Amino acid sequence: MRLDKFLCETLGVTRTQASRVLKSESVTVDGNVIKSGAVKVSEEAEIEFEGRLLTLSGPRYFMMHKPAGVVCSHEDAFNPTVFVLLDEVNGEKLHIAGRLDADTTGLLLLTDDGQWSHRITSPKHQCTKTYRVWLADPIAADTASQFEQGVMLRGEKQVTLPAKLEQVDDYEALLTIHEGKYHQVKRMFAAVGNKVEALHRESVGALELDETLEPGEYRPLTDEEIALLR
């Protein structure tokens, strides 16, 4: 493959832009600066752009420890987005598999594999999500049974699917749901007369947030982790 074509595919640039990148002497092939796009590169070649290795490998999968105050969007006029935390080539081609509110923290999944993310977000697959919830008022004794039976959310026509509530103390609980309705956890507690003060997603399906990731940090998923959500 020609080097300029390789750059077009990995950097998402035009042929003209690839030529400019090459002229800036920011591309190396096996450690050597290359300025000609006509150079043929093999599959085994190590091609770097500004010190970052470029590959034509398949879909990408990342987990992020989403901090509070950033929104799950590519662009926002008022708030920083999670994508400013990414240092990835063609990061704009990634999308979020299950968004979180701006003030919600925890496990966020990003990928460019549409089929994989569909399995997470599609209602028919009922992929579980577990949240740690902190409440404004003590948790009522019948809250777990109400959630197990399903509650009617304001503006909805059907009750929520059965959800599991594990109480940690009077004001803290773990809630596992099988849906992804708008502001669902907050609306569920509002429906039983309580208010969510803080919310943190701990897991999606069998995939748990890596405890070593600090807020704002991310890492690629392992093959085993990717398979957990297939």
Score class of each variant (00 low, 15 high):
Glu25Cys: 12
Leu213Ser: 02
Glu9Lys: 11
Ser57Trp: 05
Leu175Met: 09
Val13Leu: 08
Thr81Ala: 05
Lys23Val: 11
Phe147Asp: 05
Lys5Leu: 13
Lys40Cys: 03
Lys164Asp: 07
Asp112Ser: 13
Thr28Cys: 04
Val41Arg: 02
Leu22Tyr: 00
Gln17Arg: 15
Gly12Met: 07
Leu54Ala: 06
Ser57Gly: 15
Tyr131Glu: 11
Asp112Thr: 07
Val133Thr: 03
Leu153Pro: 04
Glu224Ser: 13
Gly205Tyr: 12
Gly31Ile: 05
Leu161Cys: 02
Met1Asp: 08
Arg201Leu: 01
Gln126Phe: 05
Leu22Asp: 01
Pro59Lys: 10
Ala45Phe: 04
Ser117Gln: 05
Gln17Met: 12
Pro162Lys: 06
Ser24Val: 08
Ile96Met: 01
Glu50Ser: 11
Asn90Thr: 12
Pro138Arg: 13
Ala136Asp: 14
Leu207Arg: 04
Val82Asp: 00
Glu75Met: 08
Thr143Asp: 09
Ala38Lys: 14
Gly51Val: 11
Arg2Phe: 10
Leu85Asn: 01
Ser145Val: 13
Val70Cys: 04
Thr14Lys: 09
Ser26Gly: 10
Val39His: 06
Phe49Asp: 04
Leu213Gly: 00
Thr111Asn: 06
Arg2Gly: 05
Ala173Pro: 03
Val21Phe: 09
Trp134Phe: 10
Val41Ile: 10
Asp170Cys: 06
Gly12Pro: 11
Leu109Ser: 00
Asp4His: 10
Thr28Ile: 05
Phe147Tyr: 07
Arg154Glu: 15
Glu217Lys: 08
